[in-house]
Amino acid sequence: MKKRIRKKRRGAAFSLAIILIVAFAWYAGTVVFPIRYFDYIEKYSLETGVDKVLILSVIHAESGFDPEAVSAADARGLMQINESTGKFISQKLGMEDYTQEKLYDPETSIRMGTWYLSYLGGLFSAERTALAAYNAGPGRVREWIASPDTGDGENLLQIPYAETSSYVKKIELRKKIYRLLYFWKL
């Protein structure tokens, strides 16, 4: 009799654990780490060769998927593009009717931000370095690479700004989480 009761308790505990795991995964996947604007992410990922998970991770870190987001530095939209970078990207993409207000449009923000990630990936061989440049700017990252304290002339060995170092780690963690939560989709 006692064995049967223990067996039922173990079965109930196992069932409860499975339910909790599934509930947590659902909550994490739909509330904490959502996938929004996936059609645009997929479209511009294919167009530029930038990993969909990287795009999702940048959007999540930059704006939390809020297309109306504005930073203290006046970066705007899902991928938080500032005025000077927006002008640079729009010229490279041949966007004649570009205004900074267009960054609030999810497709425009994703198109421009993904193109910029691709551009930075072409400038810098390591993804970590390209992400540092997305946050701090390519000119500053080139300075860090040139400095014997932080680079070796070709590679960024250490990120000297705590904000940028934290940003890169944030993106790398988000990539792992998105791959884990959406392994079947991404």
Rank of each mutant, 00 (worst) to 15 (best):
L56W: 01
Y40Q: 10
P67A: 03
V31G: 08
E172A: 12
A73I: 10
V22P: 00
N135E: 15
N82E: 05
T30I: 04
L20F: 13
K2S: 15
D74K: 02
F38L: 07
E68W: 07
A130D: 05
D66M: 09
L93D: 10
R76A: 04
G86Y: 02
L56P: 01
L78G: 12
K8M: 11
V32P: 01
V58L: 10
G151W: 00
V22H: 02
I35N: 01
L54H: 00
G86F: 00
T129W: 08
L181Q: 03
S118Q: 14
S147E: 07
R10S: 05
S84M: 09
T129L: 07
G153W: 03
P160V: 08
Y104P: 15
V58K: 01
K8T: 09
W144P: 09
Y134C: 09
Y40V: 06
P106E: 11
Y161K: 04
F65E: 12
V50H: 02
T85Y: 05
D51M: 13
Y98M: 04
F124V: 05
V70H: 01
Q80W: 06
K8C: 10
S90R: 02
G94V: 14
V141S: 11
Y178Q: 03
T114Q: 02
K169M: 10
K175M: 09
M79K: 11
H60Y: 09
